[in-house]
C-alpha cells in the first residue's frame, strides 16, 4: 500500500485552521427541578492544526463530536471554551457581523443530498445564494461556469432539486460551496448517502477541484477507507476527543491507539475477505472495551 507522500506541508507552510483546546458542553433538558440540568460533553478539549493546501480527514463514529467540531470551525455554533483560529483570525467569539471574511473563505458541503438543498428554490438561485449574500452581482455567467465545473449542464439551473439524483444534488451542493471562491472547503460525510457507483464520481470531483483551485480540504467521515483515499493526514475522534493524528497511510497500516486499532480492524474490505477473513476477524483480537 503506497500513501500520498506529502511534499508541501513543511514547517513554513502557513496554517489554515488551528483549533486549541476546544470544549463544547450542551445542557440537556432538565429532568428534575432541584438538580442542575445534566450536561453532554460533546467536545472535551480538542486541538488540531490544518496546514494550507492540506487534505485533512476527521474520522469517528456517531456521537464522537465530529459534527460539533465542524460547526465550531465554521462558526455556526459557540464554543464553551478554547479557540478556533482560521487564517490568523480568532473566530471563536466574533459577532456575526465580523465573520464576513470567514463566510466567504470557508464553505461547507453536507451529507444528506435531500436536506442540503432548499426544495423550493431553483438550482441557479441555490448556487447564487452565497454570492447574493456577499453582495456580489450573481451573474448567470458565474452560475453556468460553476455548473460546468461540477459536471452539470447549463440548463440544470432552471430546475428544482427534486428533479436530480443523489449524486447530482451533491454536485449542486459543491457548486454552491465553490461560488464565493473559498480557500477552505469543509465536507461533512459528502458521499455517505450515495450509491457506490456514484460515490467514486463525487470523490474524484472533490479531489480534482481541490487540486485545481488550491483549496484546503477538511473531510469528515465515519469511513476510514474513504478518508484514507482522499486525505493526507487524519485525526481519529472518539468520545469528544482526538485519540490519534497522523498520516492516513500510517494510521491505517499501523494504528497506535486501541480505539483506532479496533476501528481499523472492524472495516470489512474485499481484499481481506477474499483472502479468507471472516466476520470473527473484524473483531479486533484482544478486544477489551
Amino acid at each position: 500500500m503506497t500513501e500520498h507522500i506529502p511534499t508541501t506541508h513543511e514547517l513554513e507552510t502557513p496554517t489554515a485552521i488551528q483549533v486549541v483546546d476546544l470544549v463544547r458542553d450542551y445542557p440537556r433538558p432538565r429532568t428534575s427541578l432541584f438538580q442542575p440540568a445534566p450536561v453532554v460533553h460533546a467536545l472535551r478539549g480538542v486541538s488540531l492544526e490544518v496546514k494550507q493546501g492540506e487534505r485533512f480527514g476527521i474520522v469517528g463514529e456517531s456521537g464522537c463530536g465530529k459534527s460539533t467540531l465542524l460547526r465550531l470551525i465554521a462558526a455556526l455554533d459557540r464554543a464553551t471554551s478554547g479557540h478556533v483560529i482560521v487564517e490568523d483570525t480568532d473566530i471563536t467569539r466574533l459577532p456575526e457581523r465580523r465573520l464576513r471574511s470567514l463566510r466567504e473563505n470557508l464553505q461547507l458541503v453536507f451529507q444528506d443530498p435531500m436536506s442540503s438543498l432548499d426544495p423550493r428554490m431553483r438550482v441557479r438561485d441555490i448556487i447564487a445564494e452565497p454570492l447574493v449574500v456577499q453582495g456580489h452581482p450573481a451573474s448567470g455567467e458565474r452560475v453556468r461556469e460553476l455548473l460546468e465545473a461540477v459536471g452539470l449542464s447549463a440548463d440544470a439551473g432552471d430546475r428544482y432539486p427534486h428533479q436530480f439524483s443523489g449524486g447530482q444534488r451533491q454536485r449542486i451542493s459543491i457548486a454552491r460551496a465553490l461560488a464565493p471562491r473559498p480557500r477552505i472547503l469543509i465536507a461533512d460525510e459528502p458521499v455517505s448517502a450515495l450509491d457506490v457507483s456514484v460515490r467514486a464520481q463525487v470523490l474524484n470531483l472533490i479531489s480534482d477541484l481541490v487540486d485545481e483551485l488550491d483549496l484546503t480540504l477538511v473531510f469528515v467521515s465515519h469511513d476510514l477507507s474513504v478518508v484514507k483515499h482522499v486525505c493526507d493526514r487524519v485525526a481519529v475522534m472518539n468520545a469528544g476527543q482526538i485519540v490519534e493524528t497522523g498520516y492516513t497511510g500510517d494510521v491505517y497500516a499501523a494504528p497506535q491507539h486501541p480505539y483506532t486499532q479496533r476501528l481499523v480492524s472492524a472495516i470489512p474490505t474485499l481484499q481481506r475477505a477474499l483472502s479468507g477473513a471472516t466476520t470473527a476477524d473484524l473483531l479486533a483480537k484482544g478486544e477489551s472495551a
Binding site: M1, S197, R199, A200, N204, S207, H229, T269, Q271
Partner: peptide, 25 residues
Amino acid sequence: EGLLAASDLETTSRRLTTIPGNVPP
C-alpha cells in the same frame, strides 16, 4: 466489473475508476 472498480479505494492513483452517469430512478 464497474462496481468493483468504483468501490476500490485501495487504488494508488488519486482518481478512482467510475461508472459514468447516474443510477436511474
